[in-house]
C-alpha cells in the first residue's frame, strides 16, 4: 500500500513525532511504500540539524535522517511553517538574508502543495498530532 504521512507536532514535546517514526519504520518493514512524510505546524522542528538532545535519549532528527538515507524517503518540511519557526535551508538563507541554515540531511523544504499531491497519490493518509 502507498501511504502518505503527516507529522503535526515537534520532537520531544509530543509523542506524535516518535509515533510517526515508529509507524513509518514498521510500514517500510512490512513492504509498504511511504510516498512522502510531510511535516507541518511545529512538526517542522523535526528537521533541525541543530537538535542536541541528551546523549542517553533518542535523537529524533537523526533517526529521521537515517531512515531517509536507508529507504530514500521524501521528508518535506512546509515552507510557510518553517519560515515562522526559523527553519532555513540554503535557498531560504539566501532569499531572506539569514546568517545560517539549519536543515538536517534527508529533509527538504517545499510548499503545502506537496501535502495535497502526496495525499492524492497515496492510498492512505496517516496523520500524527495532538
Amino acid at each position: 500500500m502507498k501511504i502518505a504521512v503527516v507529522v503535526n507536532e515537534g520532537p520531544y514535546q509530543h509523542q506524535a513525532a516518535d509515533s510517526a517514526w515508529h509507524f513509518v519504520s514498521a510500514a517500510l518493514a512490512r513492504g509498504h511504500e511511504i510516498n512522502r512524510v510531510f511535516f507541518y505546524h511545529d512538526g517542522v522542528n523535526n528537521g533541525s540539524r541543530l537538535t542536541t538532545p541528551p546523549q542517553d535519549d533518542r535523537h529524533i532528527q537523526q533517526r529521521w535522517s537515517e531512515l531517509a538515507r536507508q529507504h530514500n524517503l521524501d521528508l518535506v518540511l512546509c515552507v510557510a511553517a518553517c519560515q515562522r519557526r526559523g527553519l532555513v535551508d540554503a535557498d531560504e538563507k539566501k532569499r531572506h538574508g539569514k546568517d545560517a541554515d539549519n536543515i538536517a540531511d534527508g529533509f527538504r523544504i517545499s510548499g503545502l502543495g506537496q501535502l495535497i499531491e502526496a495525499s492524492v497519490e497515496a492510498d492512505r493518509v496517516v496523520s500524527f498530532g495532538d
Binding site: H41, L112, G113, L115, I116, E117
Partner: peptide
Amino acid sequence: SIYALESLETVLIGAAFDQ
C-alpha cells in the same frame, strides 16, 4: 494556538489544486 490559521492555509492550497 496556530492550528486554525495553518489549517486555513492548507484549505486554500487544497482548493487551488482543484480538489
